[in-house]
């Protein structure tokens, strides 16, 4: 149940981000939309690995080897999402750096001002 709600939230965030990216003309808003898509994707990844009433995948007294497949949360999506978050941070930083330099060149953040290339 929790997993479904989380999954739906993630997918909704991806769609909101996609919509925002396609409709907004302000570079900062586009970057925020990208972040929303990224966050949505991360939530989807976490939701995929979630096991209802599960526990951390650490085998000790609380979790025996026999119980692990049914009770432990899948650790791989968690590992993937950490990597994806780091990459997302780097890409967002680069995008913001571009936003600053684009603003410096035209003194505006509207992509309509950048007419050299066809959008």
């Amino acid at each position: 149940m929790i997993s479904t709600v989380v999954l739906a939230t993630g997918l909704a965030l991806i769609l909101i981000g996609l919509w925002g990216m396609l409709t907004h003309r302000n570079i900062l808003r586009i970057i925020i939309s990208f972040s929303l898509i990224g966050t949505g994707t991360h939530i989807v990844i976490v939701a995929i690995g979630y096991v209802a009433n599960g526990t951390a995948p650490i085998i000790d007294r609380a979790l025996s080897v026999a119980d692990a497949p049914s009770r432990a949360v899948d650790p791989i999506p968690s590992a993937l999402v950490v990597t994806a978050i780091v990459i997302g941070l780097a890409v967002t930083a680069v995008m913001l750096a571009y936003a600053i330099r684009l603003y410096d060149s035209k003194k505006t953040l509207s992509i309509d001002a950048f007419t050299e290339s066809k959008w």
Binding site: Y98, R101, S105, F114, E116, S117
Partner: peptide, 12 residues
Amino acid sequence: SAALSAAFKYLM
């Protein structure tokens, strides 16, 4: 300016 906006588009 042209190179930056082209690069931003590539980035997106």
